[in-house]
Design a protein around this nucleic acid. Structure first.
Lengths: 333, 333
DNA sequence: TATATGTACGAAAACGATTAAGCTATGGCA
DNA sequence: TGCCATAGCTTAATCGTTTTCGTACATATA
């Protein structure tokens, strides 16, 4: 590896001059600058990030905390899409991203961040009630969280209240009155959707019997299937079932078909998330598409502004709208 | 941030002693060691990776080159599952992973690797004919590639030859004789599957008319749909169609249904990959499941052994078997 | 002419660790 | 008693940068 030292020898100048020339300081003559640059290029010089980080305390490396509740890791469509958009956004600004180790827990999340000296951290997907997450969030490292708000910290949040309202309103507009909701396991997101579901139902004058509310873990096709069977077994079964997410909806659809019922002729279903596969199955899934592209991009932008201009940055919740995707799983009734 | 210097002051010993104590060198007294360790812990000390890397030339950080051909990035199911398994494996051994910037190309892949001083690189998903990839592969950085073999470098390869053979044999065993194959865009993987398809067909005594061979880009549902329509329009259409991957198969299934045909009663289809969604749709997809878990794990193990014991490590191709998943899209004929 | 200003560069410290080499007691042994 | 090992530390160099403070010289100003 060629270092500045090597270049300085070849050029017959000091290391300081090389550094300044390469970093375009104004107190180096134009000719010298060009000369040094040329030699550097010829010698295949590339700066050493460790040395630079050591001196400047800036790594241009961002940590990503990504720990799916179910341990499915990177296979979670919604979060992975956010991550992808986030990655693209920050890479454009010269940052790299490194995963915060979640598997082999020899050090805490915070310790890991200190070790790697991340300039900032994006908390994309995680158990927000974990003590290690708490510790990390209360540290002095710039942080942006997704879908969860911590007081005094920036967050980008998919609008679950509005999302559920739009979805339910759409289903209602298709004539459905007996609507069941299988919600996900308890979390901020779940509570928001649930509250919004009930509020919207009331606004729409819907009567939702208790038996129409079920719980199944997110992305648990079997659990969603079982809940679906229970709903279908009711004396007055719903005409439409809302699911925690698209995957769960797949599970529900299978349970429905096992009973010999058709979708959407006999019963309607709707998912949540808008994963790619949903658009390519038959009938294609009606769902609430979360705008992962914008969410990820905003997380990136916000995090970088927290890092680069900490003073001028207002801490805030950034709320991102989704939209109803009209597939063909919600029939007219 | 507490440094060794701080600890050394508090303990009244030299920095060297602190370093040795923490790194468990044998020439430090047991009492001193314990004492220093205790103080370090109390002061919340954590080593600085940049400083350490600068000195030791080891970063314990691995680069991941992950550039989906279609720019879909992390949303590619097959590769993302490999990545996940890879990540878990190397994290267990104390390595972190950082993405090699593929979007904002201000520096080449190799330059990026030098900059970050990766101990090694996993090339998971990329255009292997890219000049930058060439450059990287021919450098002195330990590398393991997935699904592509470069002479003199380690590779983990999903057995596409055997996979296609198993799949075709299975389809044949279900009574199909008129079998079409929509293959993906040209690549090593595609060529292997295609060759294997023809060889197996010959072994089985199948006659495959030219019109039964089509091409569509990987994961391109529309393209697969169009190719499917062409196949269906033939005077003697196939009874079974094989697709480049599961997603394409979804596209094909939709095209088939648009014609009013039923799967698998009227026509059979099979995918390739074994993505999660395929198992949860109706009817669930018959496909060749690639063992992403093992592929990712082997990439991790191999890469680490290349790094940690470069001498004793034999460069090799590691071939991983897949297996046919019997869904319900291939009927008996 | 004497002084101020500006330009172009260099010397050296510092970032936080690792490590070879050196130093100093202490105890064992002839 | 004299000598040598050994245990247990310390000194100091080093990794590759960045950055502050000088310095030397040329030019402008009074």
């Amino acid at each position: 590896m060629t270092s500045m030292k090597d270049i300085s020898k070849v050029c017959g100048v000091s290391i300081a001059t090389v550094s300044k020339a390469l970093n375009n300081h104004k107190d180096i003559g134009e000719d010298t600058k060009q000369y040094i640059r040329r030699v550097a290029k010829e010698m295949g010089y590339y700066p050493n990030s460790s040395a630079r980080a050591l001196k400047t305390q800036r790594t241009y490396n961002l940590g990503v905390l990504f720990a799916d509740e179910a341990g499915s890791g990177l296979t979670h469509d919604y979060f992975v899409n956010i991550l992808e958009a986030f990655k693209r956004t920050v890479e454009e600004k010269g940052y790299d991203i490194t995963f915060i180790n979640t598997g082999a827990q020899t050090r805490s999340y915070l310790e890991h961040c200190r070790y790697r000296d991340f300039d900032g951290v994006a908390v994309v997907c995680v158990d927000f009630y974990d003590r290690q997450v708490e510790e990390l969030v209360h540290s002095d490292i710039p942080i942006v969280t997704v879908d969860h708000f911590f007081p005094g910290r920036a967050a980008v949040i998919s609008d679950n209240v509005r999302g559920m309202r739009d979805l339910l309103t759409y289903v209602h507009s298709r004539g459905h009155r007996r609507i069941a909701y299988i919600h996900g396991a308890d979390s901020h997101v779940t509570r928001n959707r649930l509250t919004s579901f009930f509020n919207t139902a009331e606004e729409l004058g819907l009567n939702i019997p208790d038996a129409y509310i079920k719980e199944a873990a997110y992305r648990d096709t079997d659990g969603a299937g079982r809940a679906t069977e229970e709903l279908l077994g009711l004396s007055k079964p719903p005409t439409c079932i809302l699911y925690p997410d698209d995957f769960s909806c797949f599970g529900g659809m299978n349970a429905i078909r096992k009973r010999g019922l058709r979708i959407p002729e006999d019963i309607s279903v709707a998912g949540y998330d808008g994963i790619r596969a949903g658009r390519h199955i038959e009938p294609c899934l009606t769902t609430l598409v979360q705008d992962t592209e914008r969410i990820g991009a905003r997380v990136g932008e916000k995090l970088i502004s927290l890092i680069e201009k900490p003073r001028s940055t207002i801490i805030e919740q950034i709320v991102i709208d989704g939209r109803v995707y009209e597939g063909r799983t919600v029939g007219r009734v």
